[in-house]
Design a protein around this nucleic acid. Structure first.
Lengths: 209, 209
DNA sequence: GTCTATAGGAGGATAGAC
DNA sequence: GTCTATCCTCCTATAGAC
């Protein structure tokens, strides 16, 4: 679940404590606005204003809008990225699905985080979008993580031998993504984690050994 | 599943045959580009160029960019909208879920249609987006349609009495939406309808009477 | 019904003072 | 490190000729 090298910005070797603080504030604002209006729908002036500096001041920290996006996505990953391993240990077998329920519950407390993901994943389906690689990385890493967990569980006999692994994983990711989108459209008016738990329960009923 | 009044454009009472043809061409192009780059990411000049006329010529047919979007969404609904009733009869009970599998299969043959929906649904989560009402309408009408089908099926004893109807419907819509997004991200590299069929089969196993 | 031309504004990025 | 001022491009929309 680590972040690929291409997203690591190499802009500043080291900065002052105040500089780091301003930088973090800018990145938080950028993530919020990119989530709300998308990358294309957000202007540097908007980000600068809400972060409390001028557009030129912002561009002192990040040389371009794309650099800002890249840094923001990296920052998200670093700080509270999709931590699926609560205690640093990757859950295996069905425990991985329980970890996803926990993730959904944590996300339910942070709509802006969900919104960033939903908005950017759709906008960046375009292969020329600056976050396109980021989206592919999200799917790939989540798929790889779940695949490893299920394969491990199969070896330990947690899954029925005829479990359609690929399908199970695709449906799981789809349900999670689709619920997030629906939850945002419905103004967070239902319990996302609870609904997802129902899905997981159903899969356990069907495929648990 | 009819389209709400607010999306009906009232621009032209009647137009020439050639005018209708140009109009349809413009709308097809607009749907394509809005799907690929979103509403915000698409310029009138782009649409005009690919439709083979000038930007001013385009604005002769549609007074504004928003009017173009509105007309395009209405056009989509009219021509090949999410026709769930193949023969004009609404399928009831589990047949409604089978109709959704058919819909997924038909959509698999038209990636641009899927892309328009995925892109716009995410972009228009913003309450100020001109297609915001359109997104809410999509969820509402699909939910209402499925609810009616399931309630009918329950009365006829097709569903177990303890079926969690709301959850079942939310998960169904989420799975469909999530699969579409994943399918686009993966370059249409799996059978969307087949995966969705697996989901429906699982729900039948769990809740069919 | 379609065009050219252009107004009027917003967005990204740069230059240079402090 | 932050600012003001500015350049240049792109966008939406309008005006008016053909």
């Amino acid at each position: 679940m680590s972040f690929p090298r291409q997203y690591r910005h190499t802009i500043t070797g080291r900065a002052s404590a105040a500089g780091d603080e301003a930088r973090a504030r800018v990145l938080e604002v950028a993530l919020d606005l990119f989530g709300a209006f998308g990358f294309r729908g957000t202007s540097l002036a908007q980000v600068a204003q809400r972060a409390g500096l001028s557009q030129a001041g912002l561009l002192h920290h990040f040389p371009s809008k794309v650099a800002l996006l890249t840094a923001a996505l990296e920052y998200r990953e670093e700080t509270e990225g999709s931590r699926l391993e609560a205690d640093g240990v990757a859950p295996l077998g069905w425990a991985a699905f329980d970890a996803l329920i926990d993730l959904a519950a944590r996300n339910a407390a942070r709509p802006p985080v969900v919104r960033l993901f939903v908005t950017l994943s759709a906008e960046a389906l375009d292969a020329d979008h600056p976050a396109h690689a980021w989206v592919l990385h999200h799917y790939d890493s989540l798929t790889a993580w779940l695949t490893a967990a299920v394969e491990h569980g199969r070896e330990r006999g947690e899954f029925r031998p005829d479990t359609p692994v690929t399908t199970l994983i695709r449906l799981t990711i789809a349900t999670l993504d689709g619920l997030q989108q629906q939850w945002l459209a419905a103004d967070q008016d239902f319990d996302m984690a609870e609904e997802f738990r129902h899905f997981v329960d159903g899969q356990k009923q069907a495929w648990k050994n």
